[in-house]
Amino acid sequence: MSRLNDSNVLLAHEIIERYPRKKSALIPLLHLSQEQNGWVTPEAMRHLAELLDITPAEVIGTATFYEMFKFEPVGKYVINVCQTMSCALLGSDGLMHHAEQKLGIKAGSTTEDGMFTLEPAECQAACTEAPTLQVNYRHRYRVTNDSFDQLVDDLRAGNLDGEIPPHGTLGRNRQHIPAEKFVGAPDPDDVSDGPVWIPVSVGDDS
């Protein structure tokens, strides 16, 4: 199934509602489609274009700008080894080399069993815990060759299933705004007044 499934379409509408302009929901919806399929399929992009009233070219234009979206199938686990300065200073090169050997693939490719995709990555905001990597964007800190082997074995054995969902899932929960508490997101063109709590002069002193 490549288009969003019915429950995801409902979710998509809920997400779109939160933005004053529909197209703002594009990146969240691309994530949603990637969560459903593991990668961003052409059919999904067409479907998002329909939902957001834009062209498929606009969807692919935005989608391909961002690193996290994959346009062909990837492994169940995408392992990103950070290569930027802090990690490099503490041996990420060696770690990458070891990872390639352990998985038997070159960085940038996927194991034959479809379990692992190995990628070089840029700074993961964990610089003090170098060298780091992410599995489906979940951090692992101060990774050694041994702890890498352990990680791969654990993933293979399913020991980390509770902690690390398959590729595509960002947070395992999402924000839900209760309808009765939702203030709403009118198009800015339809708003001319300031918020009610603001006395007219505030914010007008510049």
Binding site: P28, F65, F69, I177, P195, W197
Partner: peptide, 14 residues
């Protein structure tokens, strides 16, 4: 009378 929605938005790597 203070009302505000806070919307959690996700980036995608850039």
């Amino acid at each position: 009378d203070f009302s505000l929605d806070i919307v959690l938005h996700w980036g995608a790597g850039a």
